[in-house]
């Protein structure tokens, strides 16, 4: 009959839950987790290989100040996270290793409008907070 099922169900009752209270208790991410990319501006040469590799054309090369408030301008990638697949090809293909994976996957990436998801080089380099411009 069904006694085995019932026994199994009863055995599960005292076991602790395997789910988590999500926002309070964050998930454990693996070491190779691919979250929001981190840009090392000192290494980036603005070659545009990442933009060409991106399967979804999420990366654009833009000419921006090398640091917030600076006059000097250089070419850096700008990633539209709304189109990003987080496949990591841009990181693999970067000849100078300027891009790397960050661990952000929810914080700062939940926006109401698509245009807020455009990650400027400053944000990618974490020079300004990625949560900035988050109007709600």
């Amino acid at each position: 009959m069904v006694l085995k099922n019932i026994k199994y169900a009863l055995k599960k009752i005292p076991k602790p839950p395997v789910t988590r209270m999500y926002p309070e208790k964050a998930s454990e991410l693996s070491e190779r987790f691919r979250g929001l990319q981190i840009l090392d501006k000192s290494k980036c040469i603005g070659c545009g290989i990442c933009a060409n590799t991106c399967p979804n054309n999420a990366i654009r090369i833009v000419k921006v100040p090398i640091a917030p408030g600076s006059d000097k301008k250089r070419w850096f990638p700008e990633i539209d996270i709304g189109h990003c697949l987080f496949c990591g090809l841009c990181i693999d293909q970067c000849p100078k290793g300027a891009l790397s994976s960050g661990k952000e996957y929810a914080k700062g990436l939940v926006k109401w409008k698509h245009k807020d998801l455009l990650m400027s080089p400053d944000k990618l380099a974490r020079e300004i907070s990625i949560e900035e411009g988050d109007e709600r």
């Binding site: 169900a9 599960k12 009752i13 076991k15 602790p16 839950p17 395997v18 789910t19 209270m21």
Partner: peptide
């Protein structure tokens, strides 16, 4: 709650 316990979930909390 009981179903959550059986299924190793938390249920309403």
């Amino acid at each position: 709650k009981l179903s959550a316990d059986i299924q190793s979930r938390m249920g309403p909390c």
